[in-house]
Design a protein around this nucleic acid. Structure first.
Lengths: 345, 345
DNA sequence: TTGAAAGCGGTACCAT
DNA sequence: ATGGTACCGCTTTCAA
């Protein structure tokens, strides 16, 4: 019982007018093109009656614009990314754009292929957390005048707009705070990754430790998937036990912290009396955990806002000068129970 | 420095052959159409050289197929949905399909509008968690022969394939388990929702309580957004305190449980000695919480598998009989510390 | 073995 | 004020 899909042609024929007229009415150019009110009304009513909707596909093909923005992140099931996705979607919607999400899983091949696919679908803009090895692809995008904004991390080799946070400063502040509470053996658990947000967090930690005359204790974890849940927990446990006995840990991402908490639980280590904990990326969870976990919160709402601002700016000024918009946002440090050392005097 | 986008026409002209020939080579029909090997090779090499990629847009417009499946859920930032999204994406990929996600926020208008939009983009299939009031829209989709599979909940008024879990049985089993551990005042915290997965969970709880001669204690929460975090926690606290003092609670979704845990923490109620806890939808979190929370796990992997199976089946047999595929999957009950009442003898 | 040409469903320029 | 028509990039039938 498939209703035959009705097209602009059918309408024109049915109403005995030309395709052009119908098109003008559809696109609200009736006044501008001085179509008579009578005709306009007639067309409008018929369109409503048969519930005609123009084909976006054909529109895109013809106009070269699709009103779609791609939001390409490492993993859409990660709370950080999916929350920003939702925020962006709202903002895009208001401006007449749709968002398509996708996950790269941090794989360069997958990212490249998806970018290619989306280019071929006339997507209007890209918001991307770049995988490694993506410089050339992004540069191509830029050369072809696609609006692009990177976020979470960026590519030093490419002159592309981005929105990131103060990674180094945030890590430095967190480390300094731990030291202030009396910690001397601060550990840093991060990913074995070249991504510059990770490098910056590392840098902030290392610098602060050295400035205070302490040795660094660093664990670089393999990527998820490369290693099982159980194994990664064991790795963290080993790290905690073999270093000069750690009195605190700074985790570079929230899922590392989750693993760390699982590891500590199994070891029966008490937080914060045995060991203090701070993590990047706040989460409902950390405020609910017993004890509450001190965390560095990224300003999600603001990130989303700046991303859309960056994209829309480029979208609006096609042939204008490329707008430079490299945004570095501050974070918020939530001090909670996991860093409240019991005073021993 | 925008590279001019090259089209099949450019290739044909450059190589001095016809568009048709190029098209055949691109689509791997060279052999079938008996294009000479020499020509085929020449075209293939040139295509590689200029890195030509056909426009999906034009292909879709012409063929009516887009190789895109929409995954429309209530909230893509919810762990349950985003995990299934990721699983589905993999499976789709293998079969040459892309997935577009979107969130309805359970709003009928938004869902309707998005479905309309996607229809106009020649999307090939729909995987949907229906919002209320979506019967007509879904029926239209079906009438127009779009492949559709519903999940999480379904619409009794529409004869549409779906993949759900044994909601009533799972709730009944969980309730029975609580009773078995000695609970008499079992509370049930759910959403004020007509969605049948919620209704079924409620039914399972009520039935089991009545069968055992106990009174029911039910709290129907307003939807997220309609009420602040703080308010909803207060509502739960009030529920716990005013009923005939509850000795256990079954939460109908994981985010309700999270709120419940926050509420209990503030009340300083001890789990499980003061109150036992069970929740629908397992999560890494529940295994990490102190104490570990007993949970009803949905078989995410299996759900994703069945969903894709259902869609692909319909996709492959366009004009064949509509395949009936209504799948109801079992859940897994993880008994953890939150339901281990200390024996009082 | 290859090519011409008719569309898919629109947009918008140029006539009238 | 309204209509004719070329064209976006590709697929596919039919003809040569």
């Amino acid at each position: 019982m498939a209703k035959k899909k009705i097209s602009i042609k059918d309408i024109a024929k049915e109403l005995g007018v030309s395709i052009t007229t119908v098109s003008f009415v559809i696109n609200g150019k009736a006044k501008e093109k001085r179509i008579s009110d009578v005709l306009t009304l007639k067309v409008e009513e018929y369109i409503k009656e048969v519930n005609y909707k123009p084909s976006h596909l054909a529109q895109s093909l013809r106009s070269g614009k699709s009103k779609v923005i791609v939001f390409m992140v490492e993993d859409i099931s990660n709370y950080f990314f999916s929350t920003i996705a939702k925020l962006i979607e709202e903002k895009a919607y208001v401006n007449g754009y749709k968002i398509i999400y996708c996950s790269t899983e941090n794989k360069p091949e997958k990212a490249k292929e998806m970018i290619e696919t989306f280019k071929n679908r006339n997507v209007d803009g890209f918001i991307i957390t770049p995988t490694p090895d993506l410089e050339v692809t992004i540069q191509e995008l830029l050369d072809e005048d696609f609006p692009v904004v990177l976020f979470d991390r960026w590519l030093p080799a490419v002159d592309c707009n981005y929105v990131i946070i103060e990674n180094e400063k945030s890590a430095a502040d967190a480390t300094a705070y731990l030291i202030k509470t009396g910690c001397k053996y601060v550990g840093f658990v991060t990913l074995d990754s070249d991504q510059n947000q990770m490098q910056d967090r590392l840098k902030g930690y290392v610098k602060t430790m050295l400035e205070n005359g302490f040795q660094t204790n660093i664990l670089k974890m393999s990527y998820e998937g490369a290693i099982s849940e159980r194994e990664s927990i064991e790795v963290i446990q080993k790290f905690i036990q073999t270093s000069p006995k750690l009195d605190s840990i700074l985790f570079a991402t929230n899922f590392l912290a989750l693993k760390g908490l699982a590891a500590l639980k199994q070891l029966n280590s008490q937080i914060p009396s045995d060991i203090s904990i701070v993590t990047f990326d706040d989460h409902f969870f950390f405020n609910l955990y017993q004890p509450k976990i001190t965390a560095i919160e990224q300003p999600l709402e603001l990130i989303a806002e700046k991303l859309m601002e960056g994209i829309l700016l480029q979208l609006k000024n096609d042939n204008d000068e490329a707008h430079t918009m490299k945004v570095v946002l501050p974070t918020k440090f939530h001090i909670r129970e996991s860093t409240m050392k019991i005073e021993k005097d």
